[in-house]
Amino acid sequence: MINLWWLCIPAVVTGFILLKHLNKLSQSTTFIALTTPVFLAIVFSALILILFNIPYETFSYHTQFLSWLLEPAIVALALPLYKQFLHVRKSALLIFISSVVGIVNATVVGFLLSIVFAVPKELAHSVAALSVTTPITLVVTDSLGGIASLAAAMVIFIGLLGALFGFIILQWSGVLNHQAQGVAIGTACHAIGTAAALNKHPQIGAFSSVAMALSALLTAIIVPWLYPYLSQLLL
């Protein structure tokens, strides 16, 4: 049989670039959220693997070059973090406190739910870092012994929900302040939510970007220490 596995990476890359173009076709927030390239790319790849009965191991072996680039890309995240910090020195403290509150809340809620539903440890560890951008979730969840891929899929889904319903919920709860909306969306719904925020209003988008960057940094610092402490405290 001819070896066609080398096609994995070109196929994923081409698909991703096509999806990126598709994403730019409409200005509607709903359309932008539902055609988020990484979401569709993961859904399509998963469907192809399942339909053609391709073991995940084979796929992951032949796309490992892409996964290797994730680590330097995470280091490169320092650049947008640095740029965002210069932007918001003025309201930095309030955004900082809100991000800490959001991250701790997300970890605690996930932890409490895992106790209520009495799920296996592996699954409980997977929901410790859901309030952050996907690459950070992957490495933090992995270091905690959770299922990184499940956490990543959940984070992307949360971003989608946030982009679709986040502003409806905020309006319904009576908060219309741009800073409050932006920081809440950025911390809770990271990149996909931020894209929706930028589409809604530049000021909301700016606060959302800052909060997303800050919560990436804070999650990286807080969750690897907070989570083991939480599990010791309550188990």
Binding site: F16, S60, L70, A73, A76, L77, L79, S149, L150
Partner: peptide, 21 residues
């Protein structure tokens, strides 16, 4: 900047891993 622009591409393989679970 290229690493950041194409970052989502790098976690597609990891993201697909949920099908194992």
């Amino acid at each position: 900047s290229p690493l950041l622009n194409y970052m989502p591409l790098f976690f597609i393989p990891a993201g697909v891993g949920f099908i194992e679970h």
